[in-house]
Design a protein around this nucleic acid. Structure first.
Length: 271
DNA sequence: ACTGGCTCCTGAGGGC
DNA sequence: TGCCCTCAGGAGCCAG
């Protein structure tokens, strides 16, 4: 589920509740997530002040002086702040009690998410080490994508969804960005001109920026730290719209699988 | 080295 | 109403 805008929306919502606070108690109700939750996670976190509420790609990073709690939301994960009396729901897998009296609750029906501990600088953690640049990093630009594409045999959509090359772009925002850039998702990455990659890099940044401003996209179950949905789904132009008219030219939006993922595009506008 | 396919889960929705 | 099938914001892992 959550792509960069949803994770960033979550981060911004959590920050005022977590920054400068300490975790007084950790309850793991379901340790079997993407990876087993470390049994000593509570001991590592206990009493440590949260000095930074960060994000790297789709990972949330709660940094303390002794290490970092790495959180990934997978496909269906969410985090919310609740009072100490609030009742738990099905699929609430972890509860972190704070010295403010509030609780941070990790909820994830499909359990593709992760809660991990990094005692080293989190950038060096194996999961984060080989991540590509943030889309807002100046190192991410059209020329960078173009150079990458020279030596790969994959579609342009697969290229921009690979977290190794650029982080944060998932299925929804890949579809939307390629529509706005006018590029067919199933085009071989090698066969696209430098100038079009410049447009694509700008478009990716713009789409993610707009989505963050709208609080992310809620298709079925995303909600922010307060349990509220996002609104970017109202802005979606092609994702999930197979058979509907293209908002630009009126041709019917086409759906096909690209790299095993549902892919939506306008066969007339996108080349 | 890459690339494509499979896999981990639960729940929703459609067809019969 | 129920059963069965397919599909879903991710991404690591493995074989080829």
């Amino acid at each position: 589920m959550p792509e960069l805008p949803e994770v960033e929306t979550t981060r911004r919502g959590l920050q005022p509740h977590l920054l400068g606070r300490s975790i007084t108690r950790t309850e793991i109700l379901q340790p079997r997530l993407r990876w087993e939750v470390p049994p000593d996670l509570g001991a590592k976190l206990g009493g440590r002040e949260i000095v930074e509420v960060g994000r790297r790609g789709k990972y949330l990073l709660l940094r303390t002086s002794h290490g970092t709690l790495i959180i990934h939301l997978g496909m269906s994960g969410s985090l919310r702040i609740a009072t100490s009396e609030a009742t738990l729901r099905k699929h609430d897998h972890a509860v972190f009690s704070l010295d403010s009296g509030e609780r941070l609750i990790f909820h994830d029906p499909r359990r593709f998410g992760a809660l991990l501990w990094s005692h080293i600088a989190s950038d060096e953690h194996p999961l984060l080490r080989s991540l590509g640049p943030e889309p807002f990093d100046p190192r991410f630009h059209g020329g960078y994508l173009y150079q990458l594409a020279r030596k790969r045999r994959c579609t342009v959509k697969t290229l921009i969804m690979n977290q190794r090359w650029v982080v944060g772009v998932g299925n929804i925002y890949a579809n939307e960005s390629l529509f706005i850039a006018g590029i067919r998702p199933d085009r071989q990455a090698q066969n696209i001109a430098r100038k079009r990659y410049q447009k694509l890099a700008e478009t990716v940044r713009q789409v993610l920026t707009d989505a963050i401003a709208q609080g992310g996209t809620t298709l079925r179950d995303f909600s922010n730290a307060k349990g509220q949905p996002g609104y970017f789904q109202l802005t979606l132009q092609v994702y999930g719209k197979a058979g509907e008219p293209c908002p630009r030219c009126g041709a019917l939006i086409h759906m096909q699988k690209v790299g095993q993922r549902a892919t939506f595009f306008c066969p007339r506008c996108q080349r």
